[in-house]
Design a protein around this nucleic acid. Structure first.
Lengths: 195, 195
DNA sequence: GACAAAATAGACTGATCGGTCTAATGATTC
DNA sequence: GAATCATTAGACCGATCAGTCTATTTTGTC
């Protein structure tokens, strides 16, 4: 048997499939066939597709948040917070290039589709956004403390602007299948923050 | 008979329903029941749900573009391009408040869901984005010519930033069901452009 | 008014949807 | 090894999906 639990295997497979398609266009049968798990197992672990969606988003947001914290908040190997932020953006742009413009973020991919349909899923998405903004605010504050970013920047305000600009750019890049939007956003963010 | 054609009535009803739900979660039967039109009529006018989606998005984008041009590009009653842009944003914020955070834009609502599934729909969305950016660029250029916006602003660059920031903020406002994100975006845009 | 073309009408199809049900199997504890 | 509980297994359910088909009605043209 696999070392990963059945639940985790279902979750992982569904994240991949829904990143490529969408929430409603991926059926349970398709997910379960991909991981060779019968319906009975699914409904043993999850009470409905919606509750499954909630857990999937929670699972994804937890991973994504940990990943962001690691890259943005740890001062090794890069002690400069601004550099950490900019190279995080560059890394994301590389991923977009590799996948030919495909959206790499499940929150961005599913948000508009599911937010109006499930209050529980909406809350998970909202929490994901809040965490992302909080992390951004911390990087900016640290950059300010270390005098690595322009002192005119106010972390709380700048964090939401950078967050929304970045998400808007990622969204547009998924539409035009091109990494230009996040590149333009990155250039703007750089000149905005550089002292 | 209604003065509007059957095709237009279907299109309008579908836009409303899909703004509230999503592309895949709204069935043809639901749309057709809403306008009391039988299946046969639908498939007389459209060859598939996907092609219908393409026409619906084209129809929406054409309307939305005309609306933006009228508010942003006509110098009556407001000759100041910056004021036109800012009050356009304020107007959108009001709509968000009225609808309790619901996404007012069909392009934003459906983009992530359908872009990966239909190349034809993706192209319409991309064209919509390009037109929105072009209009923004024109307002900015005009504002620059009339010395109503900061002369450091470069229209082409600023247009994409404003576009993506605004879309990202609207997206987030649909998730947290709150008009704060576009308000923060508007504040930022105002200080960015004001001379 | 005859004819043709466009549009309306809705019953019907096979496939697939999310979800249920009962039975068989795996593991755990006494 | 008997009893228990979690898990696996997959046939099955009614509902709904996009799409088809054959009529009938409406409309425009001569």
């Amino acid at each position: 048997m696999s070392d990963r639990t059945t639940k985790e295997r279902i979750l992982d497979a569904a994240e991949g499939l829904m990143l490529e398609k969408s929430f409603h266009s991926v059926g349970l049968t398709e997910i379960l066939e991909a991981v060779k798990v019968p319906k009975g197992s699914f409904y043993h672990h999850f009470k409905s597709k919606e509750q499954f969606g909630v857990e999937m988003l929670k699972h994804y947001v937890a991973d994504a948040t940990a990943y962001k914290k690691q890259l943005l908040l740890s001062d090794t190997p890069e002690p400069d917070p601004l550099k950490r932020l900019l190279s995080f953006c560059e890394g994301t742009i590389c991923r977009v290039l590799e996948t030919k413009g495909k959206c790499p973020c499940l929150v961005l991919k599913l948000a508009a589709e599911v937010a109006d349909m499930s209050e529980a899923m909406r809350e998970v998405l909202a929490a994901g956004n809040r965490e992302a903004i909080a992390i951004l605010e911390q990087v900016l504050q640290e950059g300010l403390d270390k005098k690595k970013i322009a002192k005119t920047v106010r972390p709380a305000e700048a964090a939401v602007i950078i967050h929304d600009l970045w998400n808007g750019a990622m969204q547009r890049s998924a539409i035009c299948r091109d990494a230009t939007p996040p590149r333009e956003a990155l250039n703007f963010i750089r000149t905005l923050l550089t002292p």
